[in-house]
Design a protein around this nucleic acid. Sequence first.
RNA 1: UGGGGUGUGGUGUAACUGGCAACACAGCAGAUUCUGGAUCUGUUAUUCAAGGUUCGAUUCCUUGCACCCCAACCA
Length: 561
Amino acid sequence: MSEHPRAPDTPPAANFVRELVLADRAKGDFGGRVQTRFPPEPNGYLHIGHAKAICVDFGIAEEFGGICKLRFDDTNPETEETEYVDAIVDDVRWLGFEPGEPLYASDYFEQLYQWAEHLIATGFAYVDDQDAETISAQRGGYGRPGVESPFRSRDVEENLDLFRRMRAGEFADGAHVLRAKADMQHDNMQLRDPIMYRIRHEHHHRAGDAWVLYPTYDWAHGQSDAIEGVTHSLCSLEFDSHRALYDWYLEHLPLPGDQPRQIEFARLELTHTVTSKRKLRELIDDGLVDGWDDPRLPTLRALRRRGYPPSAIREFCEFIGVGKTNSRHQIELLEWFIRNQLNRTAPRRMTVLHPIKLVITNWPDGRTEMMTLQNNPEDPADGIRDVPFTGELWIEADDFMAEPSPKYYRLSPGSEVRLRGAFFVKCTGFETDGQGRVAEVHCTYDPETRGGNSSEGRKVKATIHWVSTAHAIDVRVALYDRLFTADVPGERTGEPLDDLNRNSKTVVDAKAEPAVAAAAPGQVLQFERLGYFAADGAERSLFHRTVGLKVEWANIQKRPK
RNA sequence: UGGGGUGUGGUGUAACUGGCAACACAGCAGAUUCUGGAUCUGUUAUUCAAGGUUCGAUUCCUUGCACCCCAACCA
């Protein structure tokens, strides 16, 4: 792992979860043990928001010498699939954590059932015959008490009988539910006799057809924690009001060990993107992006394809900390961590995205010379390579201006620049095509500057990249812009898609130096002066722009004259 | 409408449980540079509001205000 931007000997940033765990240990709770879990529902792919949760869940456990397990919260057979299970395990591992053998809430269905009977027997649960609408209406509202179900006083024997027959499959979906007998007057709506079981004649991705009775999240979650020996059950803020119910269930059960503690923290949100499963799915289903691994998406699969190093994502997550404040981090900060990492590790190559021809008029006809360039000036250990140089090169269209604006110090008539690692060249003229666009730039080179330095100490203000036209290889480069133009997609209208950037992807045909052909699938290169680019995992010669370099020039142009 | 949570520069996060409000990103200025990158130096800017307690309040008290979550047989 690379070094953290924080000074190495400063203690880890304060973090309220860490402090709560510390306090529990000081009290001797849980026998000093720390165990957490990462509990995704296998109904979609993991995204950057999950990455933070994973870092927190695994991170806290690791920090205290405890363990963290991956548990699938697969209590709803309608939406869950094995495909997602495999992808999630894979993503967790890619991020850099060892999920071990995954656990499944569905493996606890029998124990959950037994505990449900225990609750019935002790008078804390009952079978309700009413439909969802009626139950919802009886629940009351904010500031209005609920009214009790007419089935609430059903006796234990009848409840037990009905519940067993529910399990046996005697009833249709929705005919009965099992409810906790808590408090219909409670200020916290979660405690107004919540549903524990619903009947679903549905195939389960793991349990198969063994059950028609499925536990709800609230009934399954804390109990699963208890079964596994979880000590600290970390979840996101919206479950705050569920904590009372989490505790209620646990307090009414003969637990095998200590009662786990739920702690809520703020999830990660980023500007210019969305993480809701519904929106993500919509983008894909409507063909607005090319699939779950489209590099514009915040899914882990997409970020991986785009070339984001997992270690940089982890550093980012550690850096932003853990708190209870709802907030949205600027995507620029994440990108800073990505660049910071890649700058040290990505080999440099030259690729011209928008080529125009540069002709060196005093270069000997037909001559090729090999220029030696460092693979990474930030890491001399990365070695050197030879790049073929000739009298006809591709250079970036942006690197020439027929009428240079103030402060522009690349190529323009009469100016001299350095061709990276090669020679100084002086512009002597240019040709335009029929529409007045620059088609070809002419220059002369100074043979005394071979390697890129003038012997008499002459300086140039700019260095540009180049590719010999005779040796260039053709590559396709996908340039990505923000998927959403607004910081907070949907903030104005309530509909994120209203802020969709319709031009978030541009694919250009580019010219690259020969060494680019050797890029391994997934490898990230720095195309000099342009940014970082990841070789596609499947399509050779396709590169995805991971992130651009910072462009000072853009700021210069923005400044008032 | 009842309950719960949260408010610190432009953004995000800290401040040893009352003692000079700090760090990072972004911005600006300069140095340096064979990437207008990176690096280095400097710099602008912050405690939701109003009261109170106190020698002293981001921290404690009171009252407001703003935002988020909760009335799925989703998680």
